[in-house]
Simulated scan of single mutants.
Amino acid sequence: MSRKILKWLARTVAFSVAVLVAYLGLFYRWGHHAQIQSGLLGEERGFQVYLPASYDEKAGSHYPVIYSLDGEKTRHGQLMAANAHMLSALVGTPEVILVAIYTHGHRTRDFAPNRGAEAFTAFLESELMPHIDGRFRTSGQNVISGHSYGGLYALYAFAEHPGLFDAHFAYVPSVFHYEPILDQVGQRLKMETGSNTHLYLVSGAESQEKFWRGFDGVIARLTDNPNPGVSWKRAHAPLPHPLSMIPGQIMALRYLAAESSD
């Protein structure tokens, strides 16, 4: 793809972001900032919770929860909430609660399987998720969503903590940071967990071969080890690395809605 086309796509996406964030302000509640003291991590962790506009009106409704990594960035917080609402309003996908988790500068620690991913998972499972379930009307369906290093963590959660999340969104996962994850995914696919899970993978217009080597490696494991309890799909968003997750979110949310309705 030529540089001119990529620049045009980047400008188009930037304009779309501005429109969607404005749309969010009209139809979706702005995020409620909160924080909890994590005894497991030994630090205070912040996050924002985005509730559907109908949350108060539908007092008897319960909602799936999407836990979005790198939550301090607009495209992982406000924009993803806007995408979720847009799809709900236009094509009837289920409304969701979005929890955008801040990294506090620790993304390479928390998302790395060979560093702090295990402790971060314990924080999610034992502290943050019970906190959210205790304060909001959640349905029990939980999704993890991550881009790049966060996508690597989504694969780690899929491989090493089956059952914690019902679906995993991995946008351009940076597998090259920890290539043993490929074998871990392969081993996970050979397991019988007794529950169904979903994995949605998005590739972008990556110029570095190391991204494609890792992405194709994950696809190869999924193809070679079919598991009736694992539904997965791949998609391609021909945009530069920071932007590929924006259309990826829309595709992943539509995929999850379709799978959940079957």
Rank of each mutant, 00 (worst) to 15 (best):
A84T: 05
G42M: 11
F165E: 01
P228N: 03
S139W: 00
G25E: 12
N83Q: 13
H106C: 06
Y67E: 04
E259S: 08
R45I: 04
T103G: 11
K233G: 07
A237F: 10
S88H: 12
L20H: 13
Q141C: 03
F211V: 00
D110K: 07
Y102H: 14
R29K: 13
G151A: 09
L26C: 06
A18P: 07
G194D: 07
L243C: 11
D262M: 07
G150E: 09
S54W: 00
R221A: 08
L128W: 10
A170Q: 11
R75W: 02
H106W: 04
R137P: 00
E118P: 00
I97R: 01
M129R: 15
T93H: 04
T74D: 05
R137D: 00
I144L: 12
W212R: 12
S61Y: 09
K58N: 02
D183C: 03
G217W: 06
G204Y: 07
R109K: 06
T193C: 03
V91D: 03
A252Y: 10
Y28V: 13
T121K: 11
G116Y: 10
T197Q: 10
M191H: 10
G140P: 00
Y153H: 14
L51W: 01
E43T: 13
A59K: 02
V172T: 08
W30V: 12
G134I: 03
S16V: 11
S207D: 10
D70P: 06
A81V: 05
L164M: 14
H131S: 10
G46N: 11
D70H: 06
A157C: 10
Q78D: 15
P180Y: 05
G140V: 01
L98K: 02
R29I: 06
A18W: 14
D56T: 01
A157L: 12
R221L: 04
D110A: 07
L239C: 07
Y28R: 15
V202D: 13
E57L: 02
S126D: 12
V17K: 05
A159I: 08
K190D: 09
A14S: 15
T74K: 07
L98I: 11
V218M: 12
L152S: 10
S195I: 01
A154S: 15
V96L: 03
F211A: 01
P52Y: 04
W30P: 04
G92W: 02
L40S: 11
L20E: 11
G42N: 07
F27C: 00
F158L: 15
T12K: 14
T12G: 15
F15R: 14
A10P: 00
Y63P: 00
H85C: 03
